[in-house]
Simulated scan of single mutants.
Amino acid sequence: SVPLSYYSGIGAASKVGVLVKGGKYLEALAEADAFVFDKTGTLTSGKLRVDKVNATSNYSEDEVLAYAAACEKYSTHPIAIAIKDKAKNLNIPELSDYEENAGHGTAAKLNGKTLECGGTKILSDSQKAKFGKNASVFVVYDGEVIGTISVSDTVRQESKNVISSLKALGVKNTVMLTGDSSANAEKVSKELGIDNYKAELMPDDKLTNIQQIKRNSKSVCFVGDGINDAPVLSASDCGIAMGLGSEAAIEASDAVLSAGNLTQLTSAVKIARKTMSTIHINITFALLVKAAVIILAAFGFAAMWMSVVADTGVCVLCVLYAARLLK
């Protein structure tokens, strides 16, 4: 009945749109007391838009945007897509020697000089002090900041309710890990009621943080959607990927939210807990009945039919009790 309970729990989860890849991940989900979330594309829609472009040197705003779009030409990051979409009607220069450094940004050569587009990690300390709080993206040409770009995202409609529901289920710690700026991370964290957040993280930093959270938690679930989330998904006790996220994230995960949103997450937790409760009840019931028959047999009071009931009968009852998870 124990394997059937797992199969029934996995089947019940699939009915609500959550694909769990094995019984041990269902158990990890049931025991989770900490949920860690990526921000962009997970707690937020991931549909970014460029709000404002500021030219900080002898360049126009259109030139700054065009240079940024050229530098992001081959990037699939949501911010890069938003910049390229905004600049689609501009004259985009041709660059060479394209590079992309996860967590930093992109770089290329323009007229033999380095053009960079990324977050605060591409800035010097003095540049961070001057421009660091003004925007999400910075365009640096030959070591000089020539412009900044402000990009915004919208929080998913279901995110706040999901965080509240998880806390109502007894989850002790909700955490957001993001490579985005501290200002944006703080804003989203306060809006959703998340307990803790860490911002401006590299993929390796996310992995370090998840390992630290695991040391202080019974079980940790990480929810993410991007290719840079794959190592963290693998390192968590139960990695949950958004169904519309990257293939690498889905492959590295232990469960998938097939609808591509967070709505079914709390349902999956409830099903996982119900599954583990069913397993514990079945085991306890079977042991108690068998123990009672053994004691009666020791004193000569157990008939043959009692042994049959204690073995086959209990097995049938446990199987029927486990199968109810599919309803």
Rank of each mutant, 00 (worst) to 15 (best):
D97Q: 10
P78W: 03
A108S: 06
V64S: 07
K52V: 08
G17T: 06
C71D: 07
Y67D: 09
N58V: 08
H77C: 09
K21M: 10
L90T: 13
A82F: 03
V18L: 14
Y59T: 07
I79A: 08
N54M: 12
C117D: 03
G112L: 11
G105F: 02
V18A: 13
A69G: 08
P93L: 08
D33G: 10
D51Q: 15
K39W: 00
G9T: 13
A108H: 00
P93C: 10
S75N: 06
N111T: 08
Y74V: 00
K73S: 00
K86V: 10
Y25H: 14
I10C: 02
K21C: 06
T120E: 13
E63F: 04
G17N: 10
K24R: 13
S96K: 15
E94A: 08
Y7P: 00
G118N: 12
L26A: 12
E63K: 10
V20A: 09
N54E: 12
K52P: 02
L26C: 10
P93A: 11
G119P: 09
K109I: 14
S75M: 04
T40A: 06
I10N: 04
G103N: 10
K47F: 05
K21Y: 13
F35Y: 10
T56G: 01
Y7I: 11
K15G: 09
N89L: 11
L26G: 14
S8C: 14
E94G: 03
A82M: 06
S96A: 14
S57Y: 11
A68M: 07
L115Y: 03
N54P: 01
A107D: 00
E63S: 07
Y98R: 00
K52C: 11
V53L: 12
L115N: 02
G112P: 08
